[in-house]
Design a binder for these strands. Structure first.
Lengths: 231, 231
DNA sequence: CGAATGCTTCGGCCGCGGCCGAAGCATTCG
DNA sequence: CGAATGCTTCGGCCGCGGCCGAAGCATTCG
């Protein structure tokens, strides 16, 4: 019998995510941005006091990280793995018993295009992966992905810098999309594509949601550069 | 405002996994086998009545599936996605605050080699992926994986049938290992390798645990075929 | 400086859900 | 057939944890 260093248990982590208020908080942070305790209280739908308690629990378990800035406290996800675990849970949830639920245009927007930690997800991202694959700029097979030589050139022309030697983060990864049930691009490539679309002013992050909206410039940009006709 | 068909929510699924008894049940089922309600009660550490309630909740949410057989009721995970979500949560849990915990030889065995749904995980599986990659039988890059031409030949010689045209399941996938923090092989290849090692009598499934043990034949087999020296 | 803002700590309420004993139903065994 | 086995349903207990009001601390603003 030895003592080893160990983290939380599966049940501890799951029960932290399993409270509705905390799940809302974590989903609000799922796009990688840092939000203040007050903003998170709004997302969670409970009082600031209650939120404070939830945030303390999440921080104790290292699910979120804290940064003090003046009288504000900014919280963000502690690691991309947290977002990955939530995506995996969303997939399980989507396979659950089918029930009719009231839903609104906000859900529709989320399904069309949203951010997932630092890359794009939803219909847009899945379609983008398809188009890039059809043009042999990336290879998609069995859930794996790689950039071709033509792809490297194409992405460089598009303004991406993928040659960061300091980063040990995988260049090209796929991520299963809970709303589309198919893969979209993650990794450094996925993040760079998302950032570049933001920089070009093609898409804008939603204020209170992970949904992204398209600018007129983006609508023509996606059509001309990637052959994607937005709905 | 329209009504759309939707499954569970993130928080619902997470809170189902978040109860210690239910987490034990799900982990007992994580290797893909079907167990009776009584066996699961033993794993959960609660009474049969309580277990029955937990099983009903898990089945309602489609996390587990039920098969009646005489006076027994067999339960199994409803899909591999459930196991994937639990693995993702284990990774988050392993990154949690470090604490010293009592642990025993059972943990040691789990870390060395265990089943993960239908494929192998732990030190053995990570080392196996490394060796196969070093010999260029598979290509591992950025968390993606593919089988080379030499690999196809090698796996055929080893007795694997990977040419099932009916299966839409990805042939070669990787899966992040919570104990080793590195990738091992999943997908059809991972499952076939695991099954072949069982068929050859190299490894045996544990009775009350996902840990697998090695036979003398297995110890020499892994050394001769894959160049792996077991501890 | 005092007032306002952002957030947390403290205290106490309350109800959800996990728990088991007792009882009941279904199947198998002898 | 009655007894045994496997599991579930019912009922009631109990405590954990989410919740908010009140109060307090830290920072910023004017």
């Amino acid at each position: 019998m030895t003592n080893i260093v160990s983290g939380n248990s599966l049940a501890e982590v799951a029960s932290l995510i399993g409270d509705p208020a905390r799940a809302n908080i974590l989903q609000a942070l799922a796009d990688g941005r840092a939000l203040t305790a007050g903003e998170l209280a709004w997302h969670a739908g409970v009082s600031p006091q209650t939120t404070s308690g939830h945030l303390a629990k999440l921080a104790d378990a290292h699910l979120i990280a804290l940064e003090k800035q003046g009288r504000h406290r900014y919280f963000r996800l502690a690691s991309p793995e947290i977002a990955a675990a939530m995506e995996a849970l969303m997939i399980v949830a989507a396979n659950g018993p089918k029930r009719y639920r009231p839903t609104g245009p906000k859900d529709e927007a989320l399904r069309t295009a949203r951010t997932c930690y630092d890359h794009l997800a939803g219909w847009l991202a899945v379609t983008l992966a398809d188009r890039l694959s059809a043009r042999r700029l990336i290879l998609l097979a069995d859930g794996a992905a790689a950039i071709t030589a033509e792809g490297h050139q194409f992405f460089r022309d598009f303004g991406l810098d993928l040659d960061d030697p300091k980063s040990s983060r995988p260049l090209c990864r796929t991520c299963l999309d809970w709303s589309e049930r198919r893969s979209h691009l993650a990794g450094r490539l996925g993040a760079a594509l998302c950032q570049r679309c933001l920089d070009l002013g093609w898409i804008r992050r939603g204020k209170d949601s992970r949904a992204v909206s398209f600018t007129p410039k983006g609508i023509s940009g996606f059509r001309e550069t990637f052959g994607i006709s937005l709905p």
